[in-house]
């Protein structure tokens, strides 16, 4: 783990920097409604890299996986329930 930590960190950093560059470039293109999807998916990719590699969840025990995952599960419930209300209101379309 210790020996591999540095190259893994460097690779993660390079991927993060590249993803950020692509995100910024794509957000300047006229993608219409797809911009939101593309930009947020790329941001989620960056977030995942930080959680798994920088925060080392990937190398941690199942208990930490569950603790970290549970937060996102609750966040998912919050967003799903709230947005299923707002997005289904006729006035927003």
């Amino acid at each position: 783990m210790t020996e591999n930590a540095r190259p893994a960190s460097l690779l993660t950093f390079v991927c993060l920097a590249a993803l950020l560059g692509v995100t910024i470039l794509l957000s300047r293109l006229p993608l219409g409604p797809w911009r939101v999807v593309v930009v947020l998916l790329l941001a989620a990719g960056q977030g995942l890299l930080v959680i798994l590699n920088f925060m080392r969840v990937r190398l941690n025990s199942p208990l930490i996986w569950v603790a970290a995952g549970a937060s996102f599960l609750w966040l998912g419930i919050l967003f799903t329930l709230a947005l299923s209300d707002y997005l289904s209101r006729a006035a927003t379309w």
């Binding site: 995100t23 006229p30 930009v39 960056q46 930080v50």
Partner: peptide, 20 residues
């Protein structure tokens, strides 16, 4: 890292979704 993680979402939500 968590503070970095939060910024990773603040940046696109506020800065990038305005469009060109």
């Amino acid at each position: 890292h968590f503070v970095d993680f939060i910024w990773i979402f603040i940046f696109p939500l506020f800065y990038l979704l305005g469009g060109p």
